[in-house]
Design a protein around this nucleic acid. Structure first.
Lengths: 188, 188, 188, 188
DNA sequence: ACCTAAACGAGACGGTACGTCTCGTCTTTCT
DNA sequence: AGAAAGACGAGACGTACCGTCTCGTTTAGGT
């Protein structure tokens, strides 16, 4: 292999054990109670092995996110031909997840970290399916369901923002929440 | 005098010194680098005096917020008679503040804390002026600028959410951002 | 009453409650775990009332000792006419007290404090009955049981020293210990 | 090699720095003003490094004593053939040390700790040379200077006790003190 | 088959901050 | 004025983690 490295290769076993321990502890007790020593002990790994490959706790979380260990891999909008319904369904999925009390610690910690660490934020946005929703909007334009000059970027932005605001605000979710939000941005 | 308390009364001097130290350190280095010992030293106060009255760092931040030591007391929407313009101006104010690199640490830390601690969240929402905007929307309905059946709650929610999303997402703000967001929720 | 003092007189109730609390805590947990706050709480007294009248914990202990709240008021040597027997009996009393496991904390703390604080030391020596033993020695000289040139001061000193050394050394006491010590200083 | 230890070995440098700091502070201000934080700072060491290896301040003092950092390594009785003189000289050494005002804090604290902590007591007794004196007494018996049935153990006990009592009692030492004590236990 | 070198588990190290406890002082209210 | 109550500035306690630095052990190319 190209450049002649000597010595043992990076242990994939250790890498996964570390990320799994990270995910476990993060989901259980949140970012604040995440400790390098706890992860190392949980993963059965030396602390140095963590510091060798990751610069910070945020980096660990970001990678665990990428590996799909913290969130469903993606929230994917369907394409039934009815853009309103598809958007509302996607929002429902989102609200169901973030509104589940079992995920409360995880979700709050995750968004808090995302706000402070750009890499986690980028990754999280991706996991929420924003880019897929944007694509779905494009196809709705092509199908003539939305006027071409509709501010699509802003609409996606507002909808995801609405989700974040509900988390921030602890507003209880009702069955018609998604519909009302979609109506607010697409008109009645 | 009603209930006969004995012993020295709580020191208002100490209380303010502590909150000011909290605000100073928070604005300077964010929530993560906020330490009880640092605040105590900065305020010239014993640690116990802090623990006697506040249960956590988050409580300190919440109270500093209430005292108006962290944010402008309120972002207040104007009432020029033109609801679109007033909303856009209010958003511009908000974006100007949260987009200012000098406030980056403060803003990110504040929203991160708000997501994890309900009391900070409630207070922060108030400081952003959400309830004033809601009232402004009501008056716009009275003035016939918005149809009475417009989903006003959702609109406010989406707009603030949009701001939060921009923070999360680090999207650069352009001069027309506010107008575009308002247009997206109120129609063109 | 001579010099015209004004205001309330010192409360004897409080004084005794404080000394009793001191004795209780001292006997229970030793000097190290004696705290001003604990004494005040136990005595149902404000801390200032203690500080107003005593300069230190050692002073409290010394006074509790004087009040006879820590040790039997005095270890008194009998006068049966047989100086050897009287000394041995007195030593037996002493050993019985200091060797009792129930008094271990009390005794060790007391001697430790006595070594560091002259006032406690003086008072403790008095409580052990040293001056009475010296007097008993004098009468033994008068009775012709001890030669007049015997180093009486040194003998008392050595005997009490022997007791202290046994405490220091944790040597178990046997029934003949006292007799052997007396024999060592008075000859067989 | 036998039991496969892993991880870094204990740092002898740190160990000695800690004991030296302990000895320094102890000799300077006594046991009461000995603080773990002070020792750690003085030794340039983290507090945990102390707690990792020693359970208490007393244990630190005991080990500093063993290392000969607090007292002359041993008070050794000479053997000139004259047991009376040798004992008196040894006592003189002892009195010279414990009577020196420069050693007052050290000596009092040391004996106070010794009374409360068995391990310090054992070690202190050894440092005073008790076992060497006992051996010297044996050789005096062999040389016919002391009758074989003399209560040697008790004599050593009483002599050391006499020293402790003088400390407790703050009796000033005169040049003939040692001689008088020896005479009291060995006869004229 | 050796040799080197990197990664690994373990864990000691110098530090910082935690939240609690006690100190001795000061202030307030009551007696 | 004395006393009970209790807030205050100070600072040590013992613990938990931080990020770095040895240790010996294991693994895997070079030679």
């Amino acid at each position: 292999m190209a450049e002649g490295r000597r010595g043992a290769a990076r242990s994939e076993t250790a890498r996964l054990a570390i990320l799994e321990a990270t995910a476990r502890q993060f989901a259980g007790s949140g970012f604040d109670h995440l400790t390098m020593e706890g992860i190392a002990a949980d993963a059965g790994v030396g602390k140095q092995t963590i510091y060798r490959w990751w610069p910070s706790k945020a980096a660990l979380v970001a990678e665990a996110l990428i590996e799909g260990m913290l969130l469903p891999d993606r929230f994917v909008p369907a394409d039934t031909g009815d853009i309103r319904r598809d958007l509302a369904d996607w929002l429902d999925d989102l609200f169901a997840f973030v509104g589940d009390p079992a995920h409360d610690t995880l979700v709050r910690s995750l968004f808090a970290v995302a706000i402070e660490h750009a890499d986690v934020g980028t990754r999280l946005r991706e996991n929420l399916g924003t880019s897929l929703v944007a694509a779905r909007m494009d196809s709705a334009v092509a199908a003539g369901q939305i006027p071409p000059d509709a501010p699509r970027t802003e609409i996606v932005e507002l909808l995801v923002g609405g989700v974040v605001f509900r988390i921030l605000n602890r507003t209880p979710i009702t069955p018609d929440t998604s519909g009302r939000l979609v109506a607010a941005v697409l008109g009645a």
